[in-house]
Design a protein around this nucleic acid. Sequence first.
DNA 1: AGAAGGACCAGTGGTCCGTA
DNA 2: AGAAGGACCAGTGGTCCGTA
Lengths: 252, 252
Amino acid sequence: FHDTALDALSQEGLSEEHVQQEKEAAASGGGGTWEAAASGKKQQRRKKAKSKISSMEDDEADSDRADHTKDDNVATVERQREHPFIVTEPGEVARGKKNGLDYLFHLYEQCREFLVHVQSIAKEKGEKCPTKVTNQVFRYAKKAGASYINKPKMRHYVHCYALHCLDEEASNALRRLYKERGENVGAWRQACYKPLVAIAAQKGWDIDLIFNTHPRLSIWYVPTKLRQLCHAERSCVAASAAATTGTHHLTF
Amino acid sequence: FHDTALDALSQEGLSEEHVQQEKEAAASGGGGTWEAAASGKKQQRRKKAKSKISSMEDDEADSDRADHTKDDNVATVERQREHPFIVTEPGEVARGKKNGLDYLFHLYEQCREFLVHVQSIAKEKGEKCPTKVTNQVFRYAKKAGASYINKPKMRHYVHCYALHCLDEEASNALRRLYKERGENVGAWRQACYKPLVAIAAQKGWDIDLIFNTHPRLSIWYVPTKLRQLCHAERSCVAASAAATTGTHHLTF
DNA sequence: AGAAGGACCAGTGGTCCGTA
DNA sequence: AGAAGGACCAGTGGTCCGTA
């Protein structure tokens, strides 16, 4: 009986593997034990489930809300969101209903793998081949059972991942500092911008080049805000340099 | 009084330069004398005109259709289309109300210039910088007065331009042949696919790589049909090779 | 309050088909 | 008939804001 809601939107057979896979997703994301997800790799390939529950329709809306067993945990209808992230040190596993930052960065690696699949399928079929993590890739990830991956989340933290890629030492140090201070994820996320701008400054302000040049980062769009910060900072630095030297406009 | 229709959609002042520029556009494209367009370069920069006539609205629809002076030629309302292309030899200027293929290829070079402008503006502003000829570039071209450039046309002939870029000799030979035979543009256009597929075969079938590797071609999207032809041909060749050697699937 | 993500929206790539 | 291009459309990048 608990299948009905799930099947409502994913009419693609596989009902047994289906439930199985729901368990896995719940374990890796919801439960916070991403160790399981990391070791039990293969998990995400070639399965399907839309998991478009919570789009509460007519009859289910009423019937399901009744038998609220709360911890049946297999395919209950109130769709679990991923546990929120907390600031963790490198190597630290988040406890309680939280996810750590190693898990966050792991999601970026998973997206890369999904992109690679999409690319090889496209090449095989002689179709246009994406070079970035596009909507198509997010759709593919979802179909492959990685329902815990979604565009807004991935875009939200890209620059944090960028810092991790470009200067792991600095990234680690920042994580330790913000953990120690007991800061929340939002504060840590904000703090990731500054060292990135500094890196951009060092490398001639070309943030696109910095992204495109890095093997793991090149598949991600440069976030608008990071681009804006780099631009603003460059203008600012240029202006003050000009002021100091007393030159007008094009100091070399 | 002849301004009304033009101004209806382009409320951006400049009414004098406006008419001026309409003349130029008419001369270069409509008149077929693209020599003038080529020599009188600078023409296309920083002007504006929407030229969204023929979107006949309520009142004008009736009033303008009345004073049909037919050859006033400055800003008459029946918007002139570009003259159709004919197959010309390299260096040959089309006569009569026609445009030649050198002019066609020239349009691709102009688009490249527009892209370069759009790129430098984007960089200056610290915004996302297009690497291809996008809608934004077509919009910019139109605003700059190059109303004779439009997306469907440019996309239609990209592969012809590709052949011109990749093997000018072959392209020239094909033009001479099709001119001699008195073939129309459509036939010539179709014929451009074959030598391109041959080039792709030579270079390992990677048409995207071929485009992206060429300095002038890299800014154009690979046309769907060319991609499909390359894929079909590759499959075909692979299959027959496998059949001949008697191997199954993965021949070395 | 802080955070996750469904869902919307403006502008894209692609090209059809009403037009001349 | 052959051809030029306005205009449409499905699916994109981007992110807001109703939700938990």
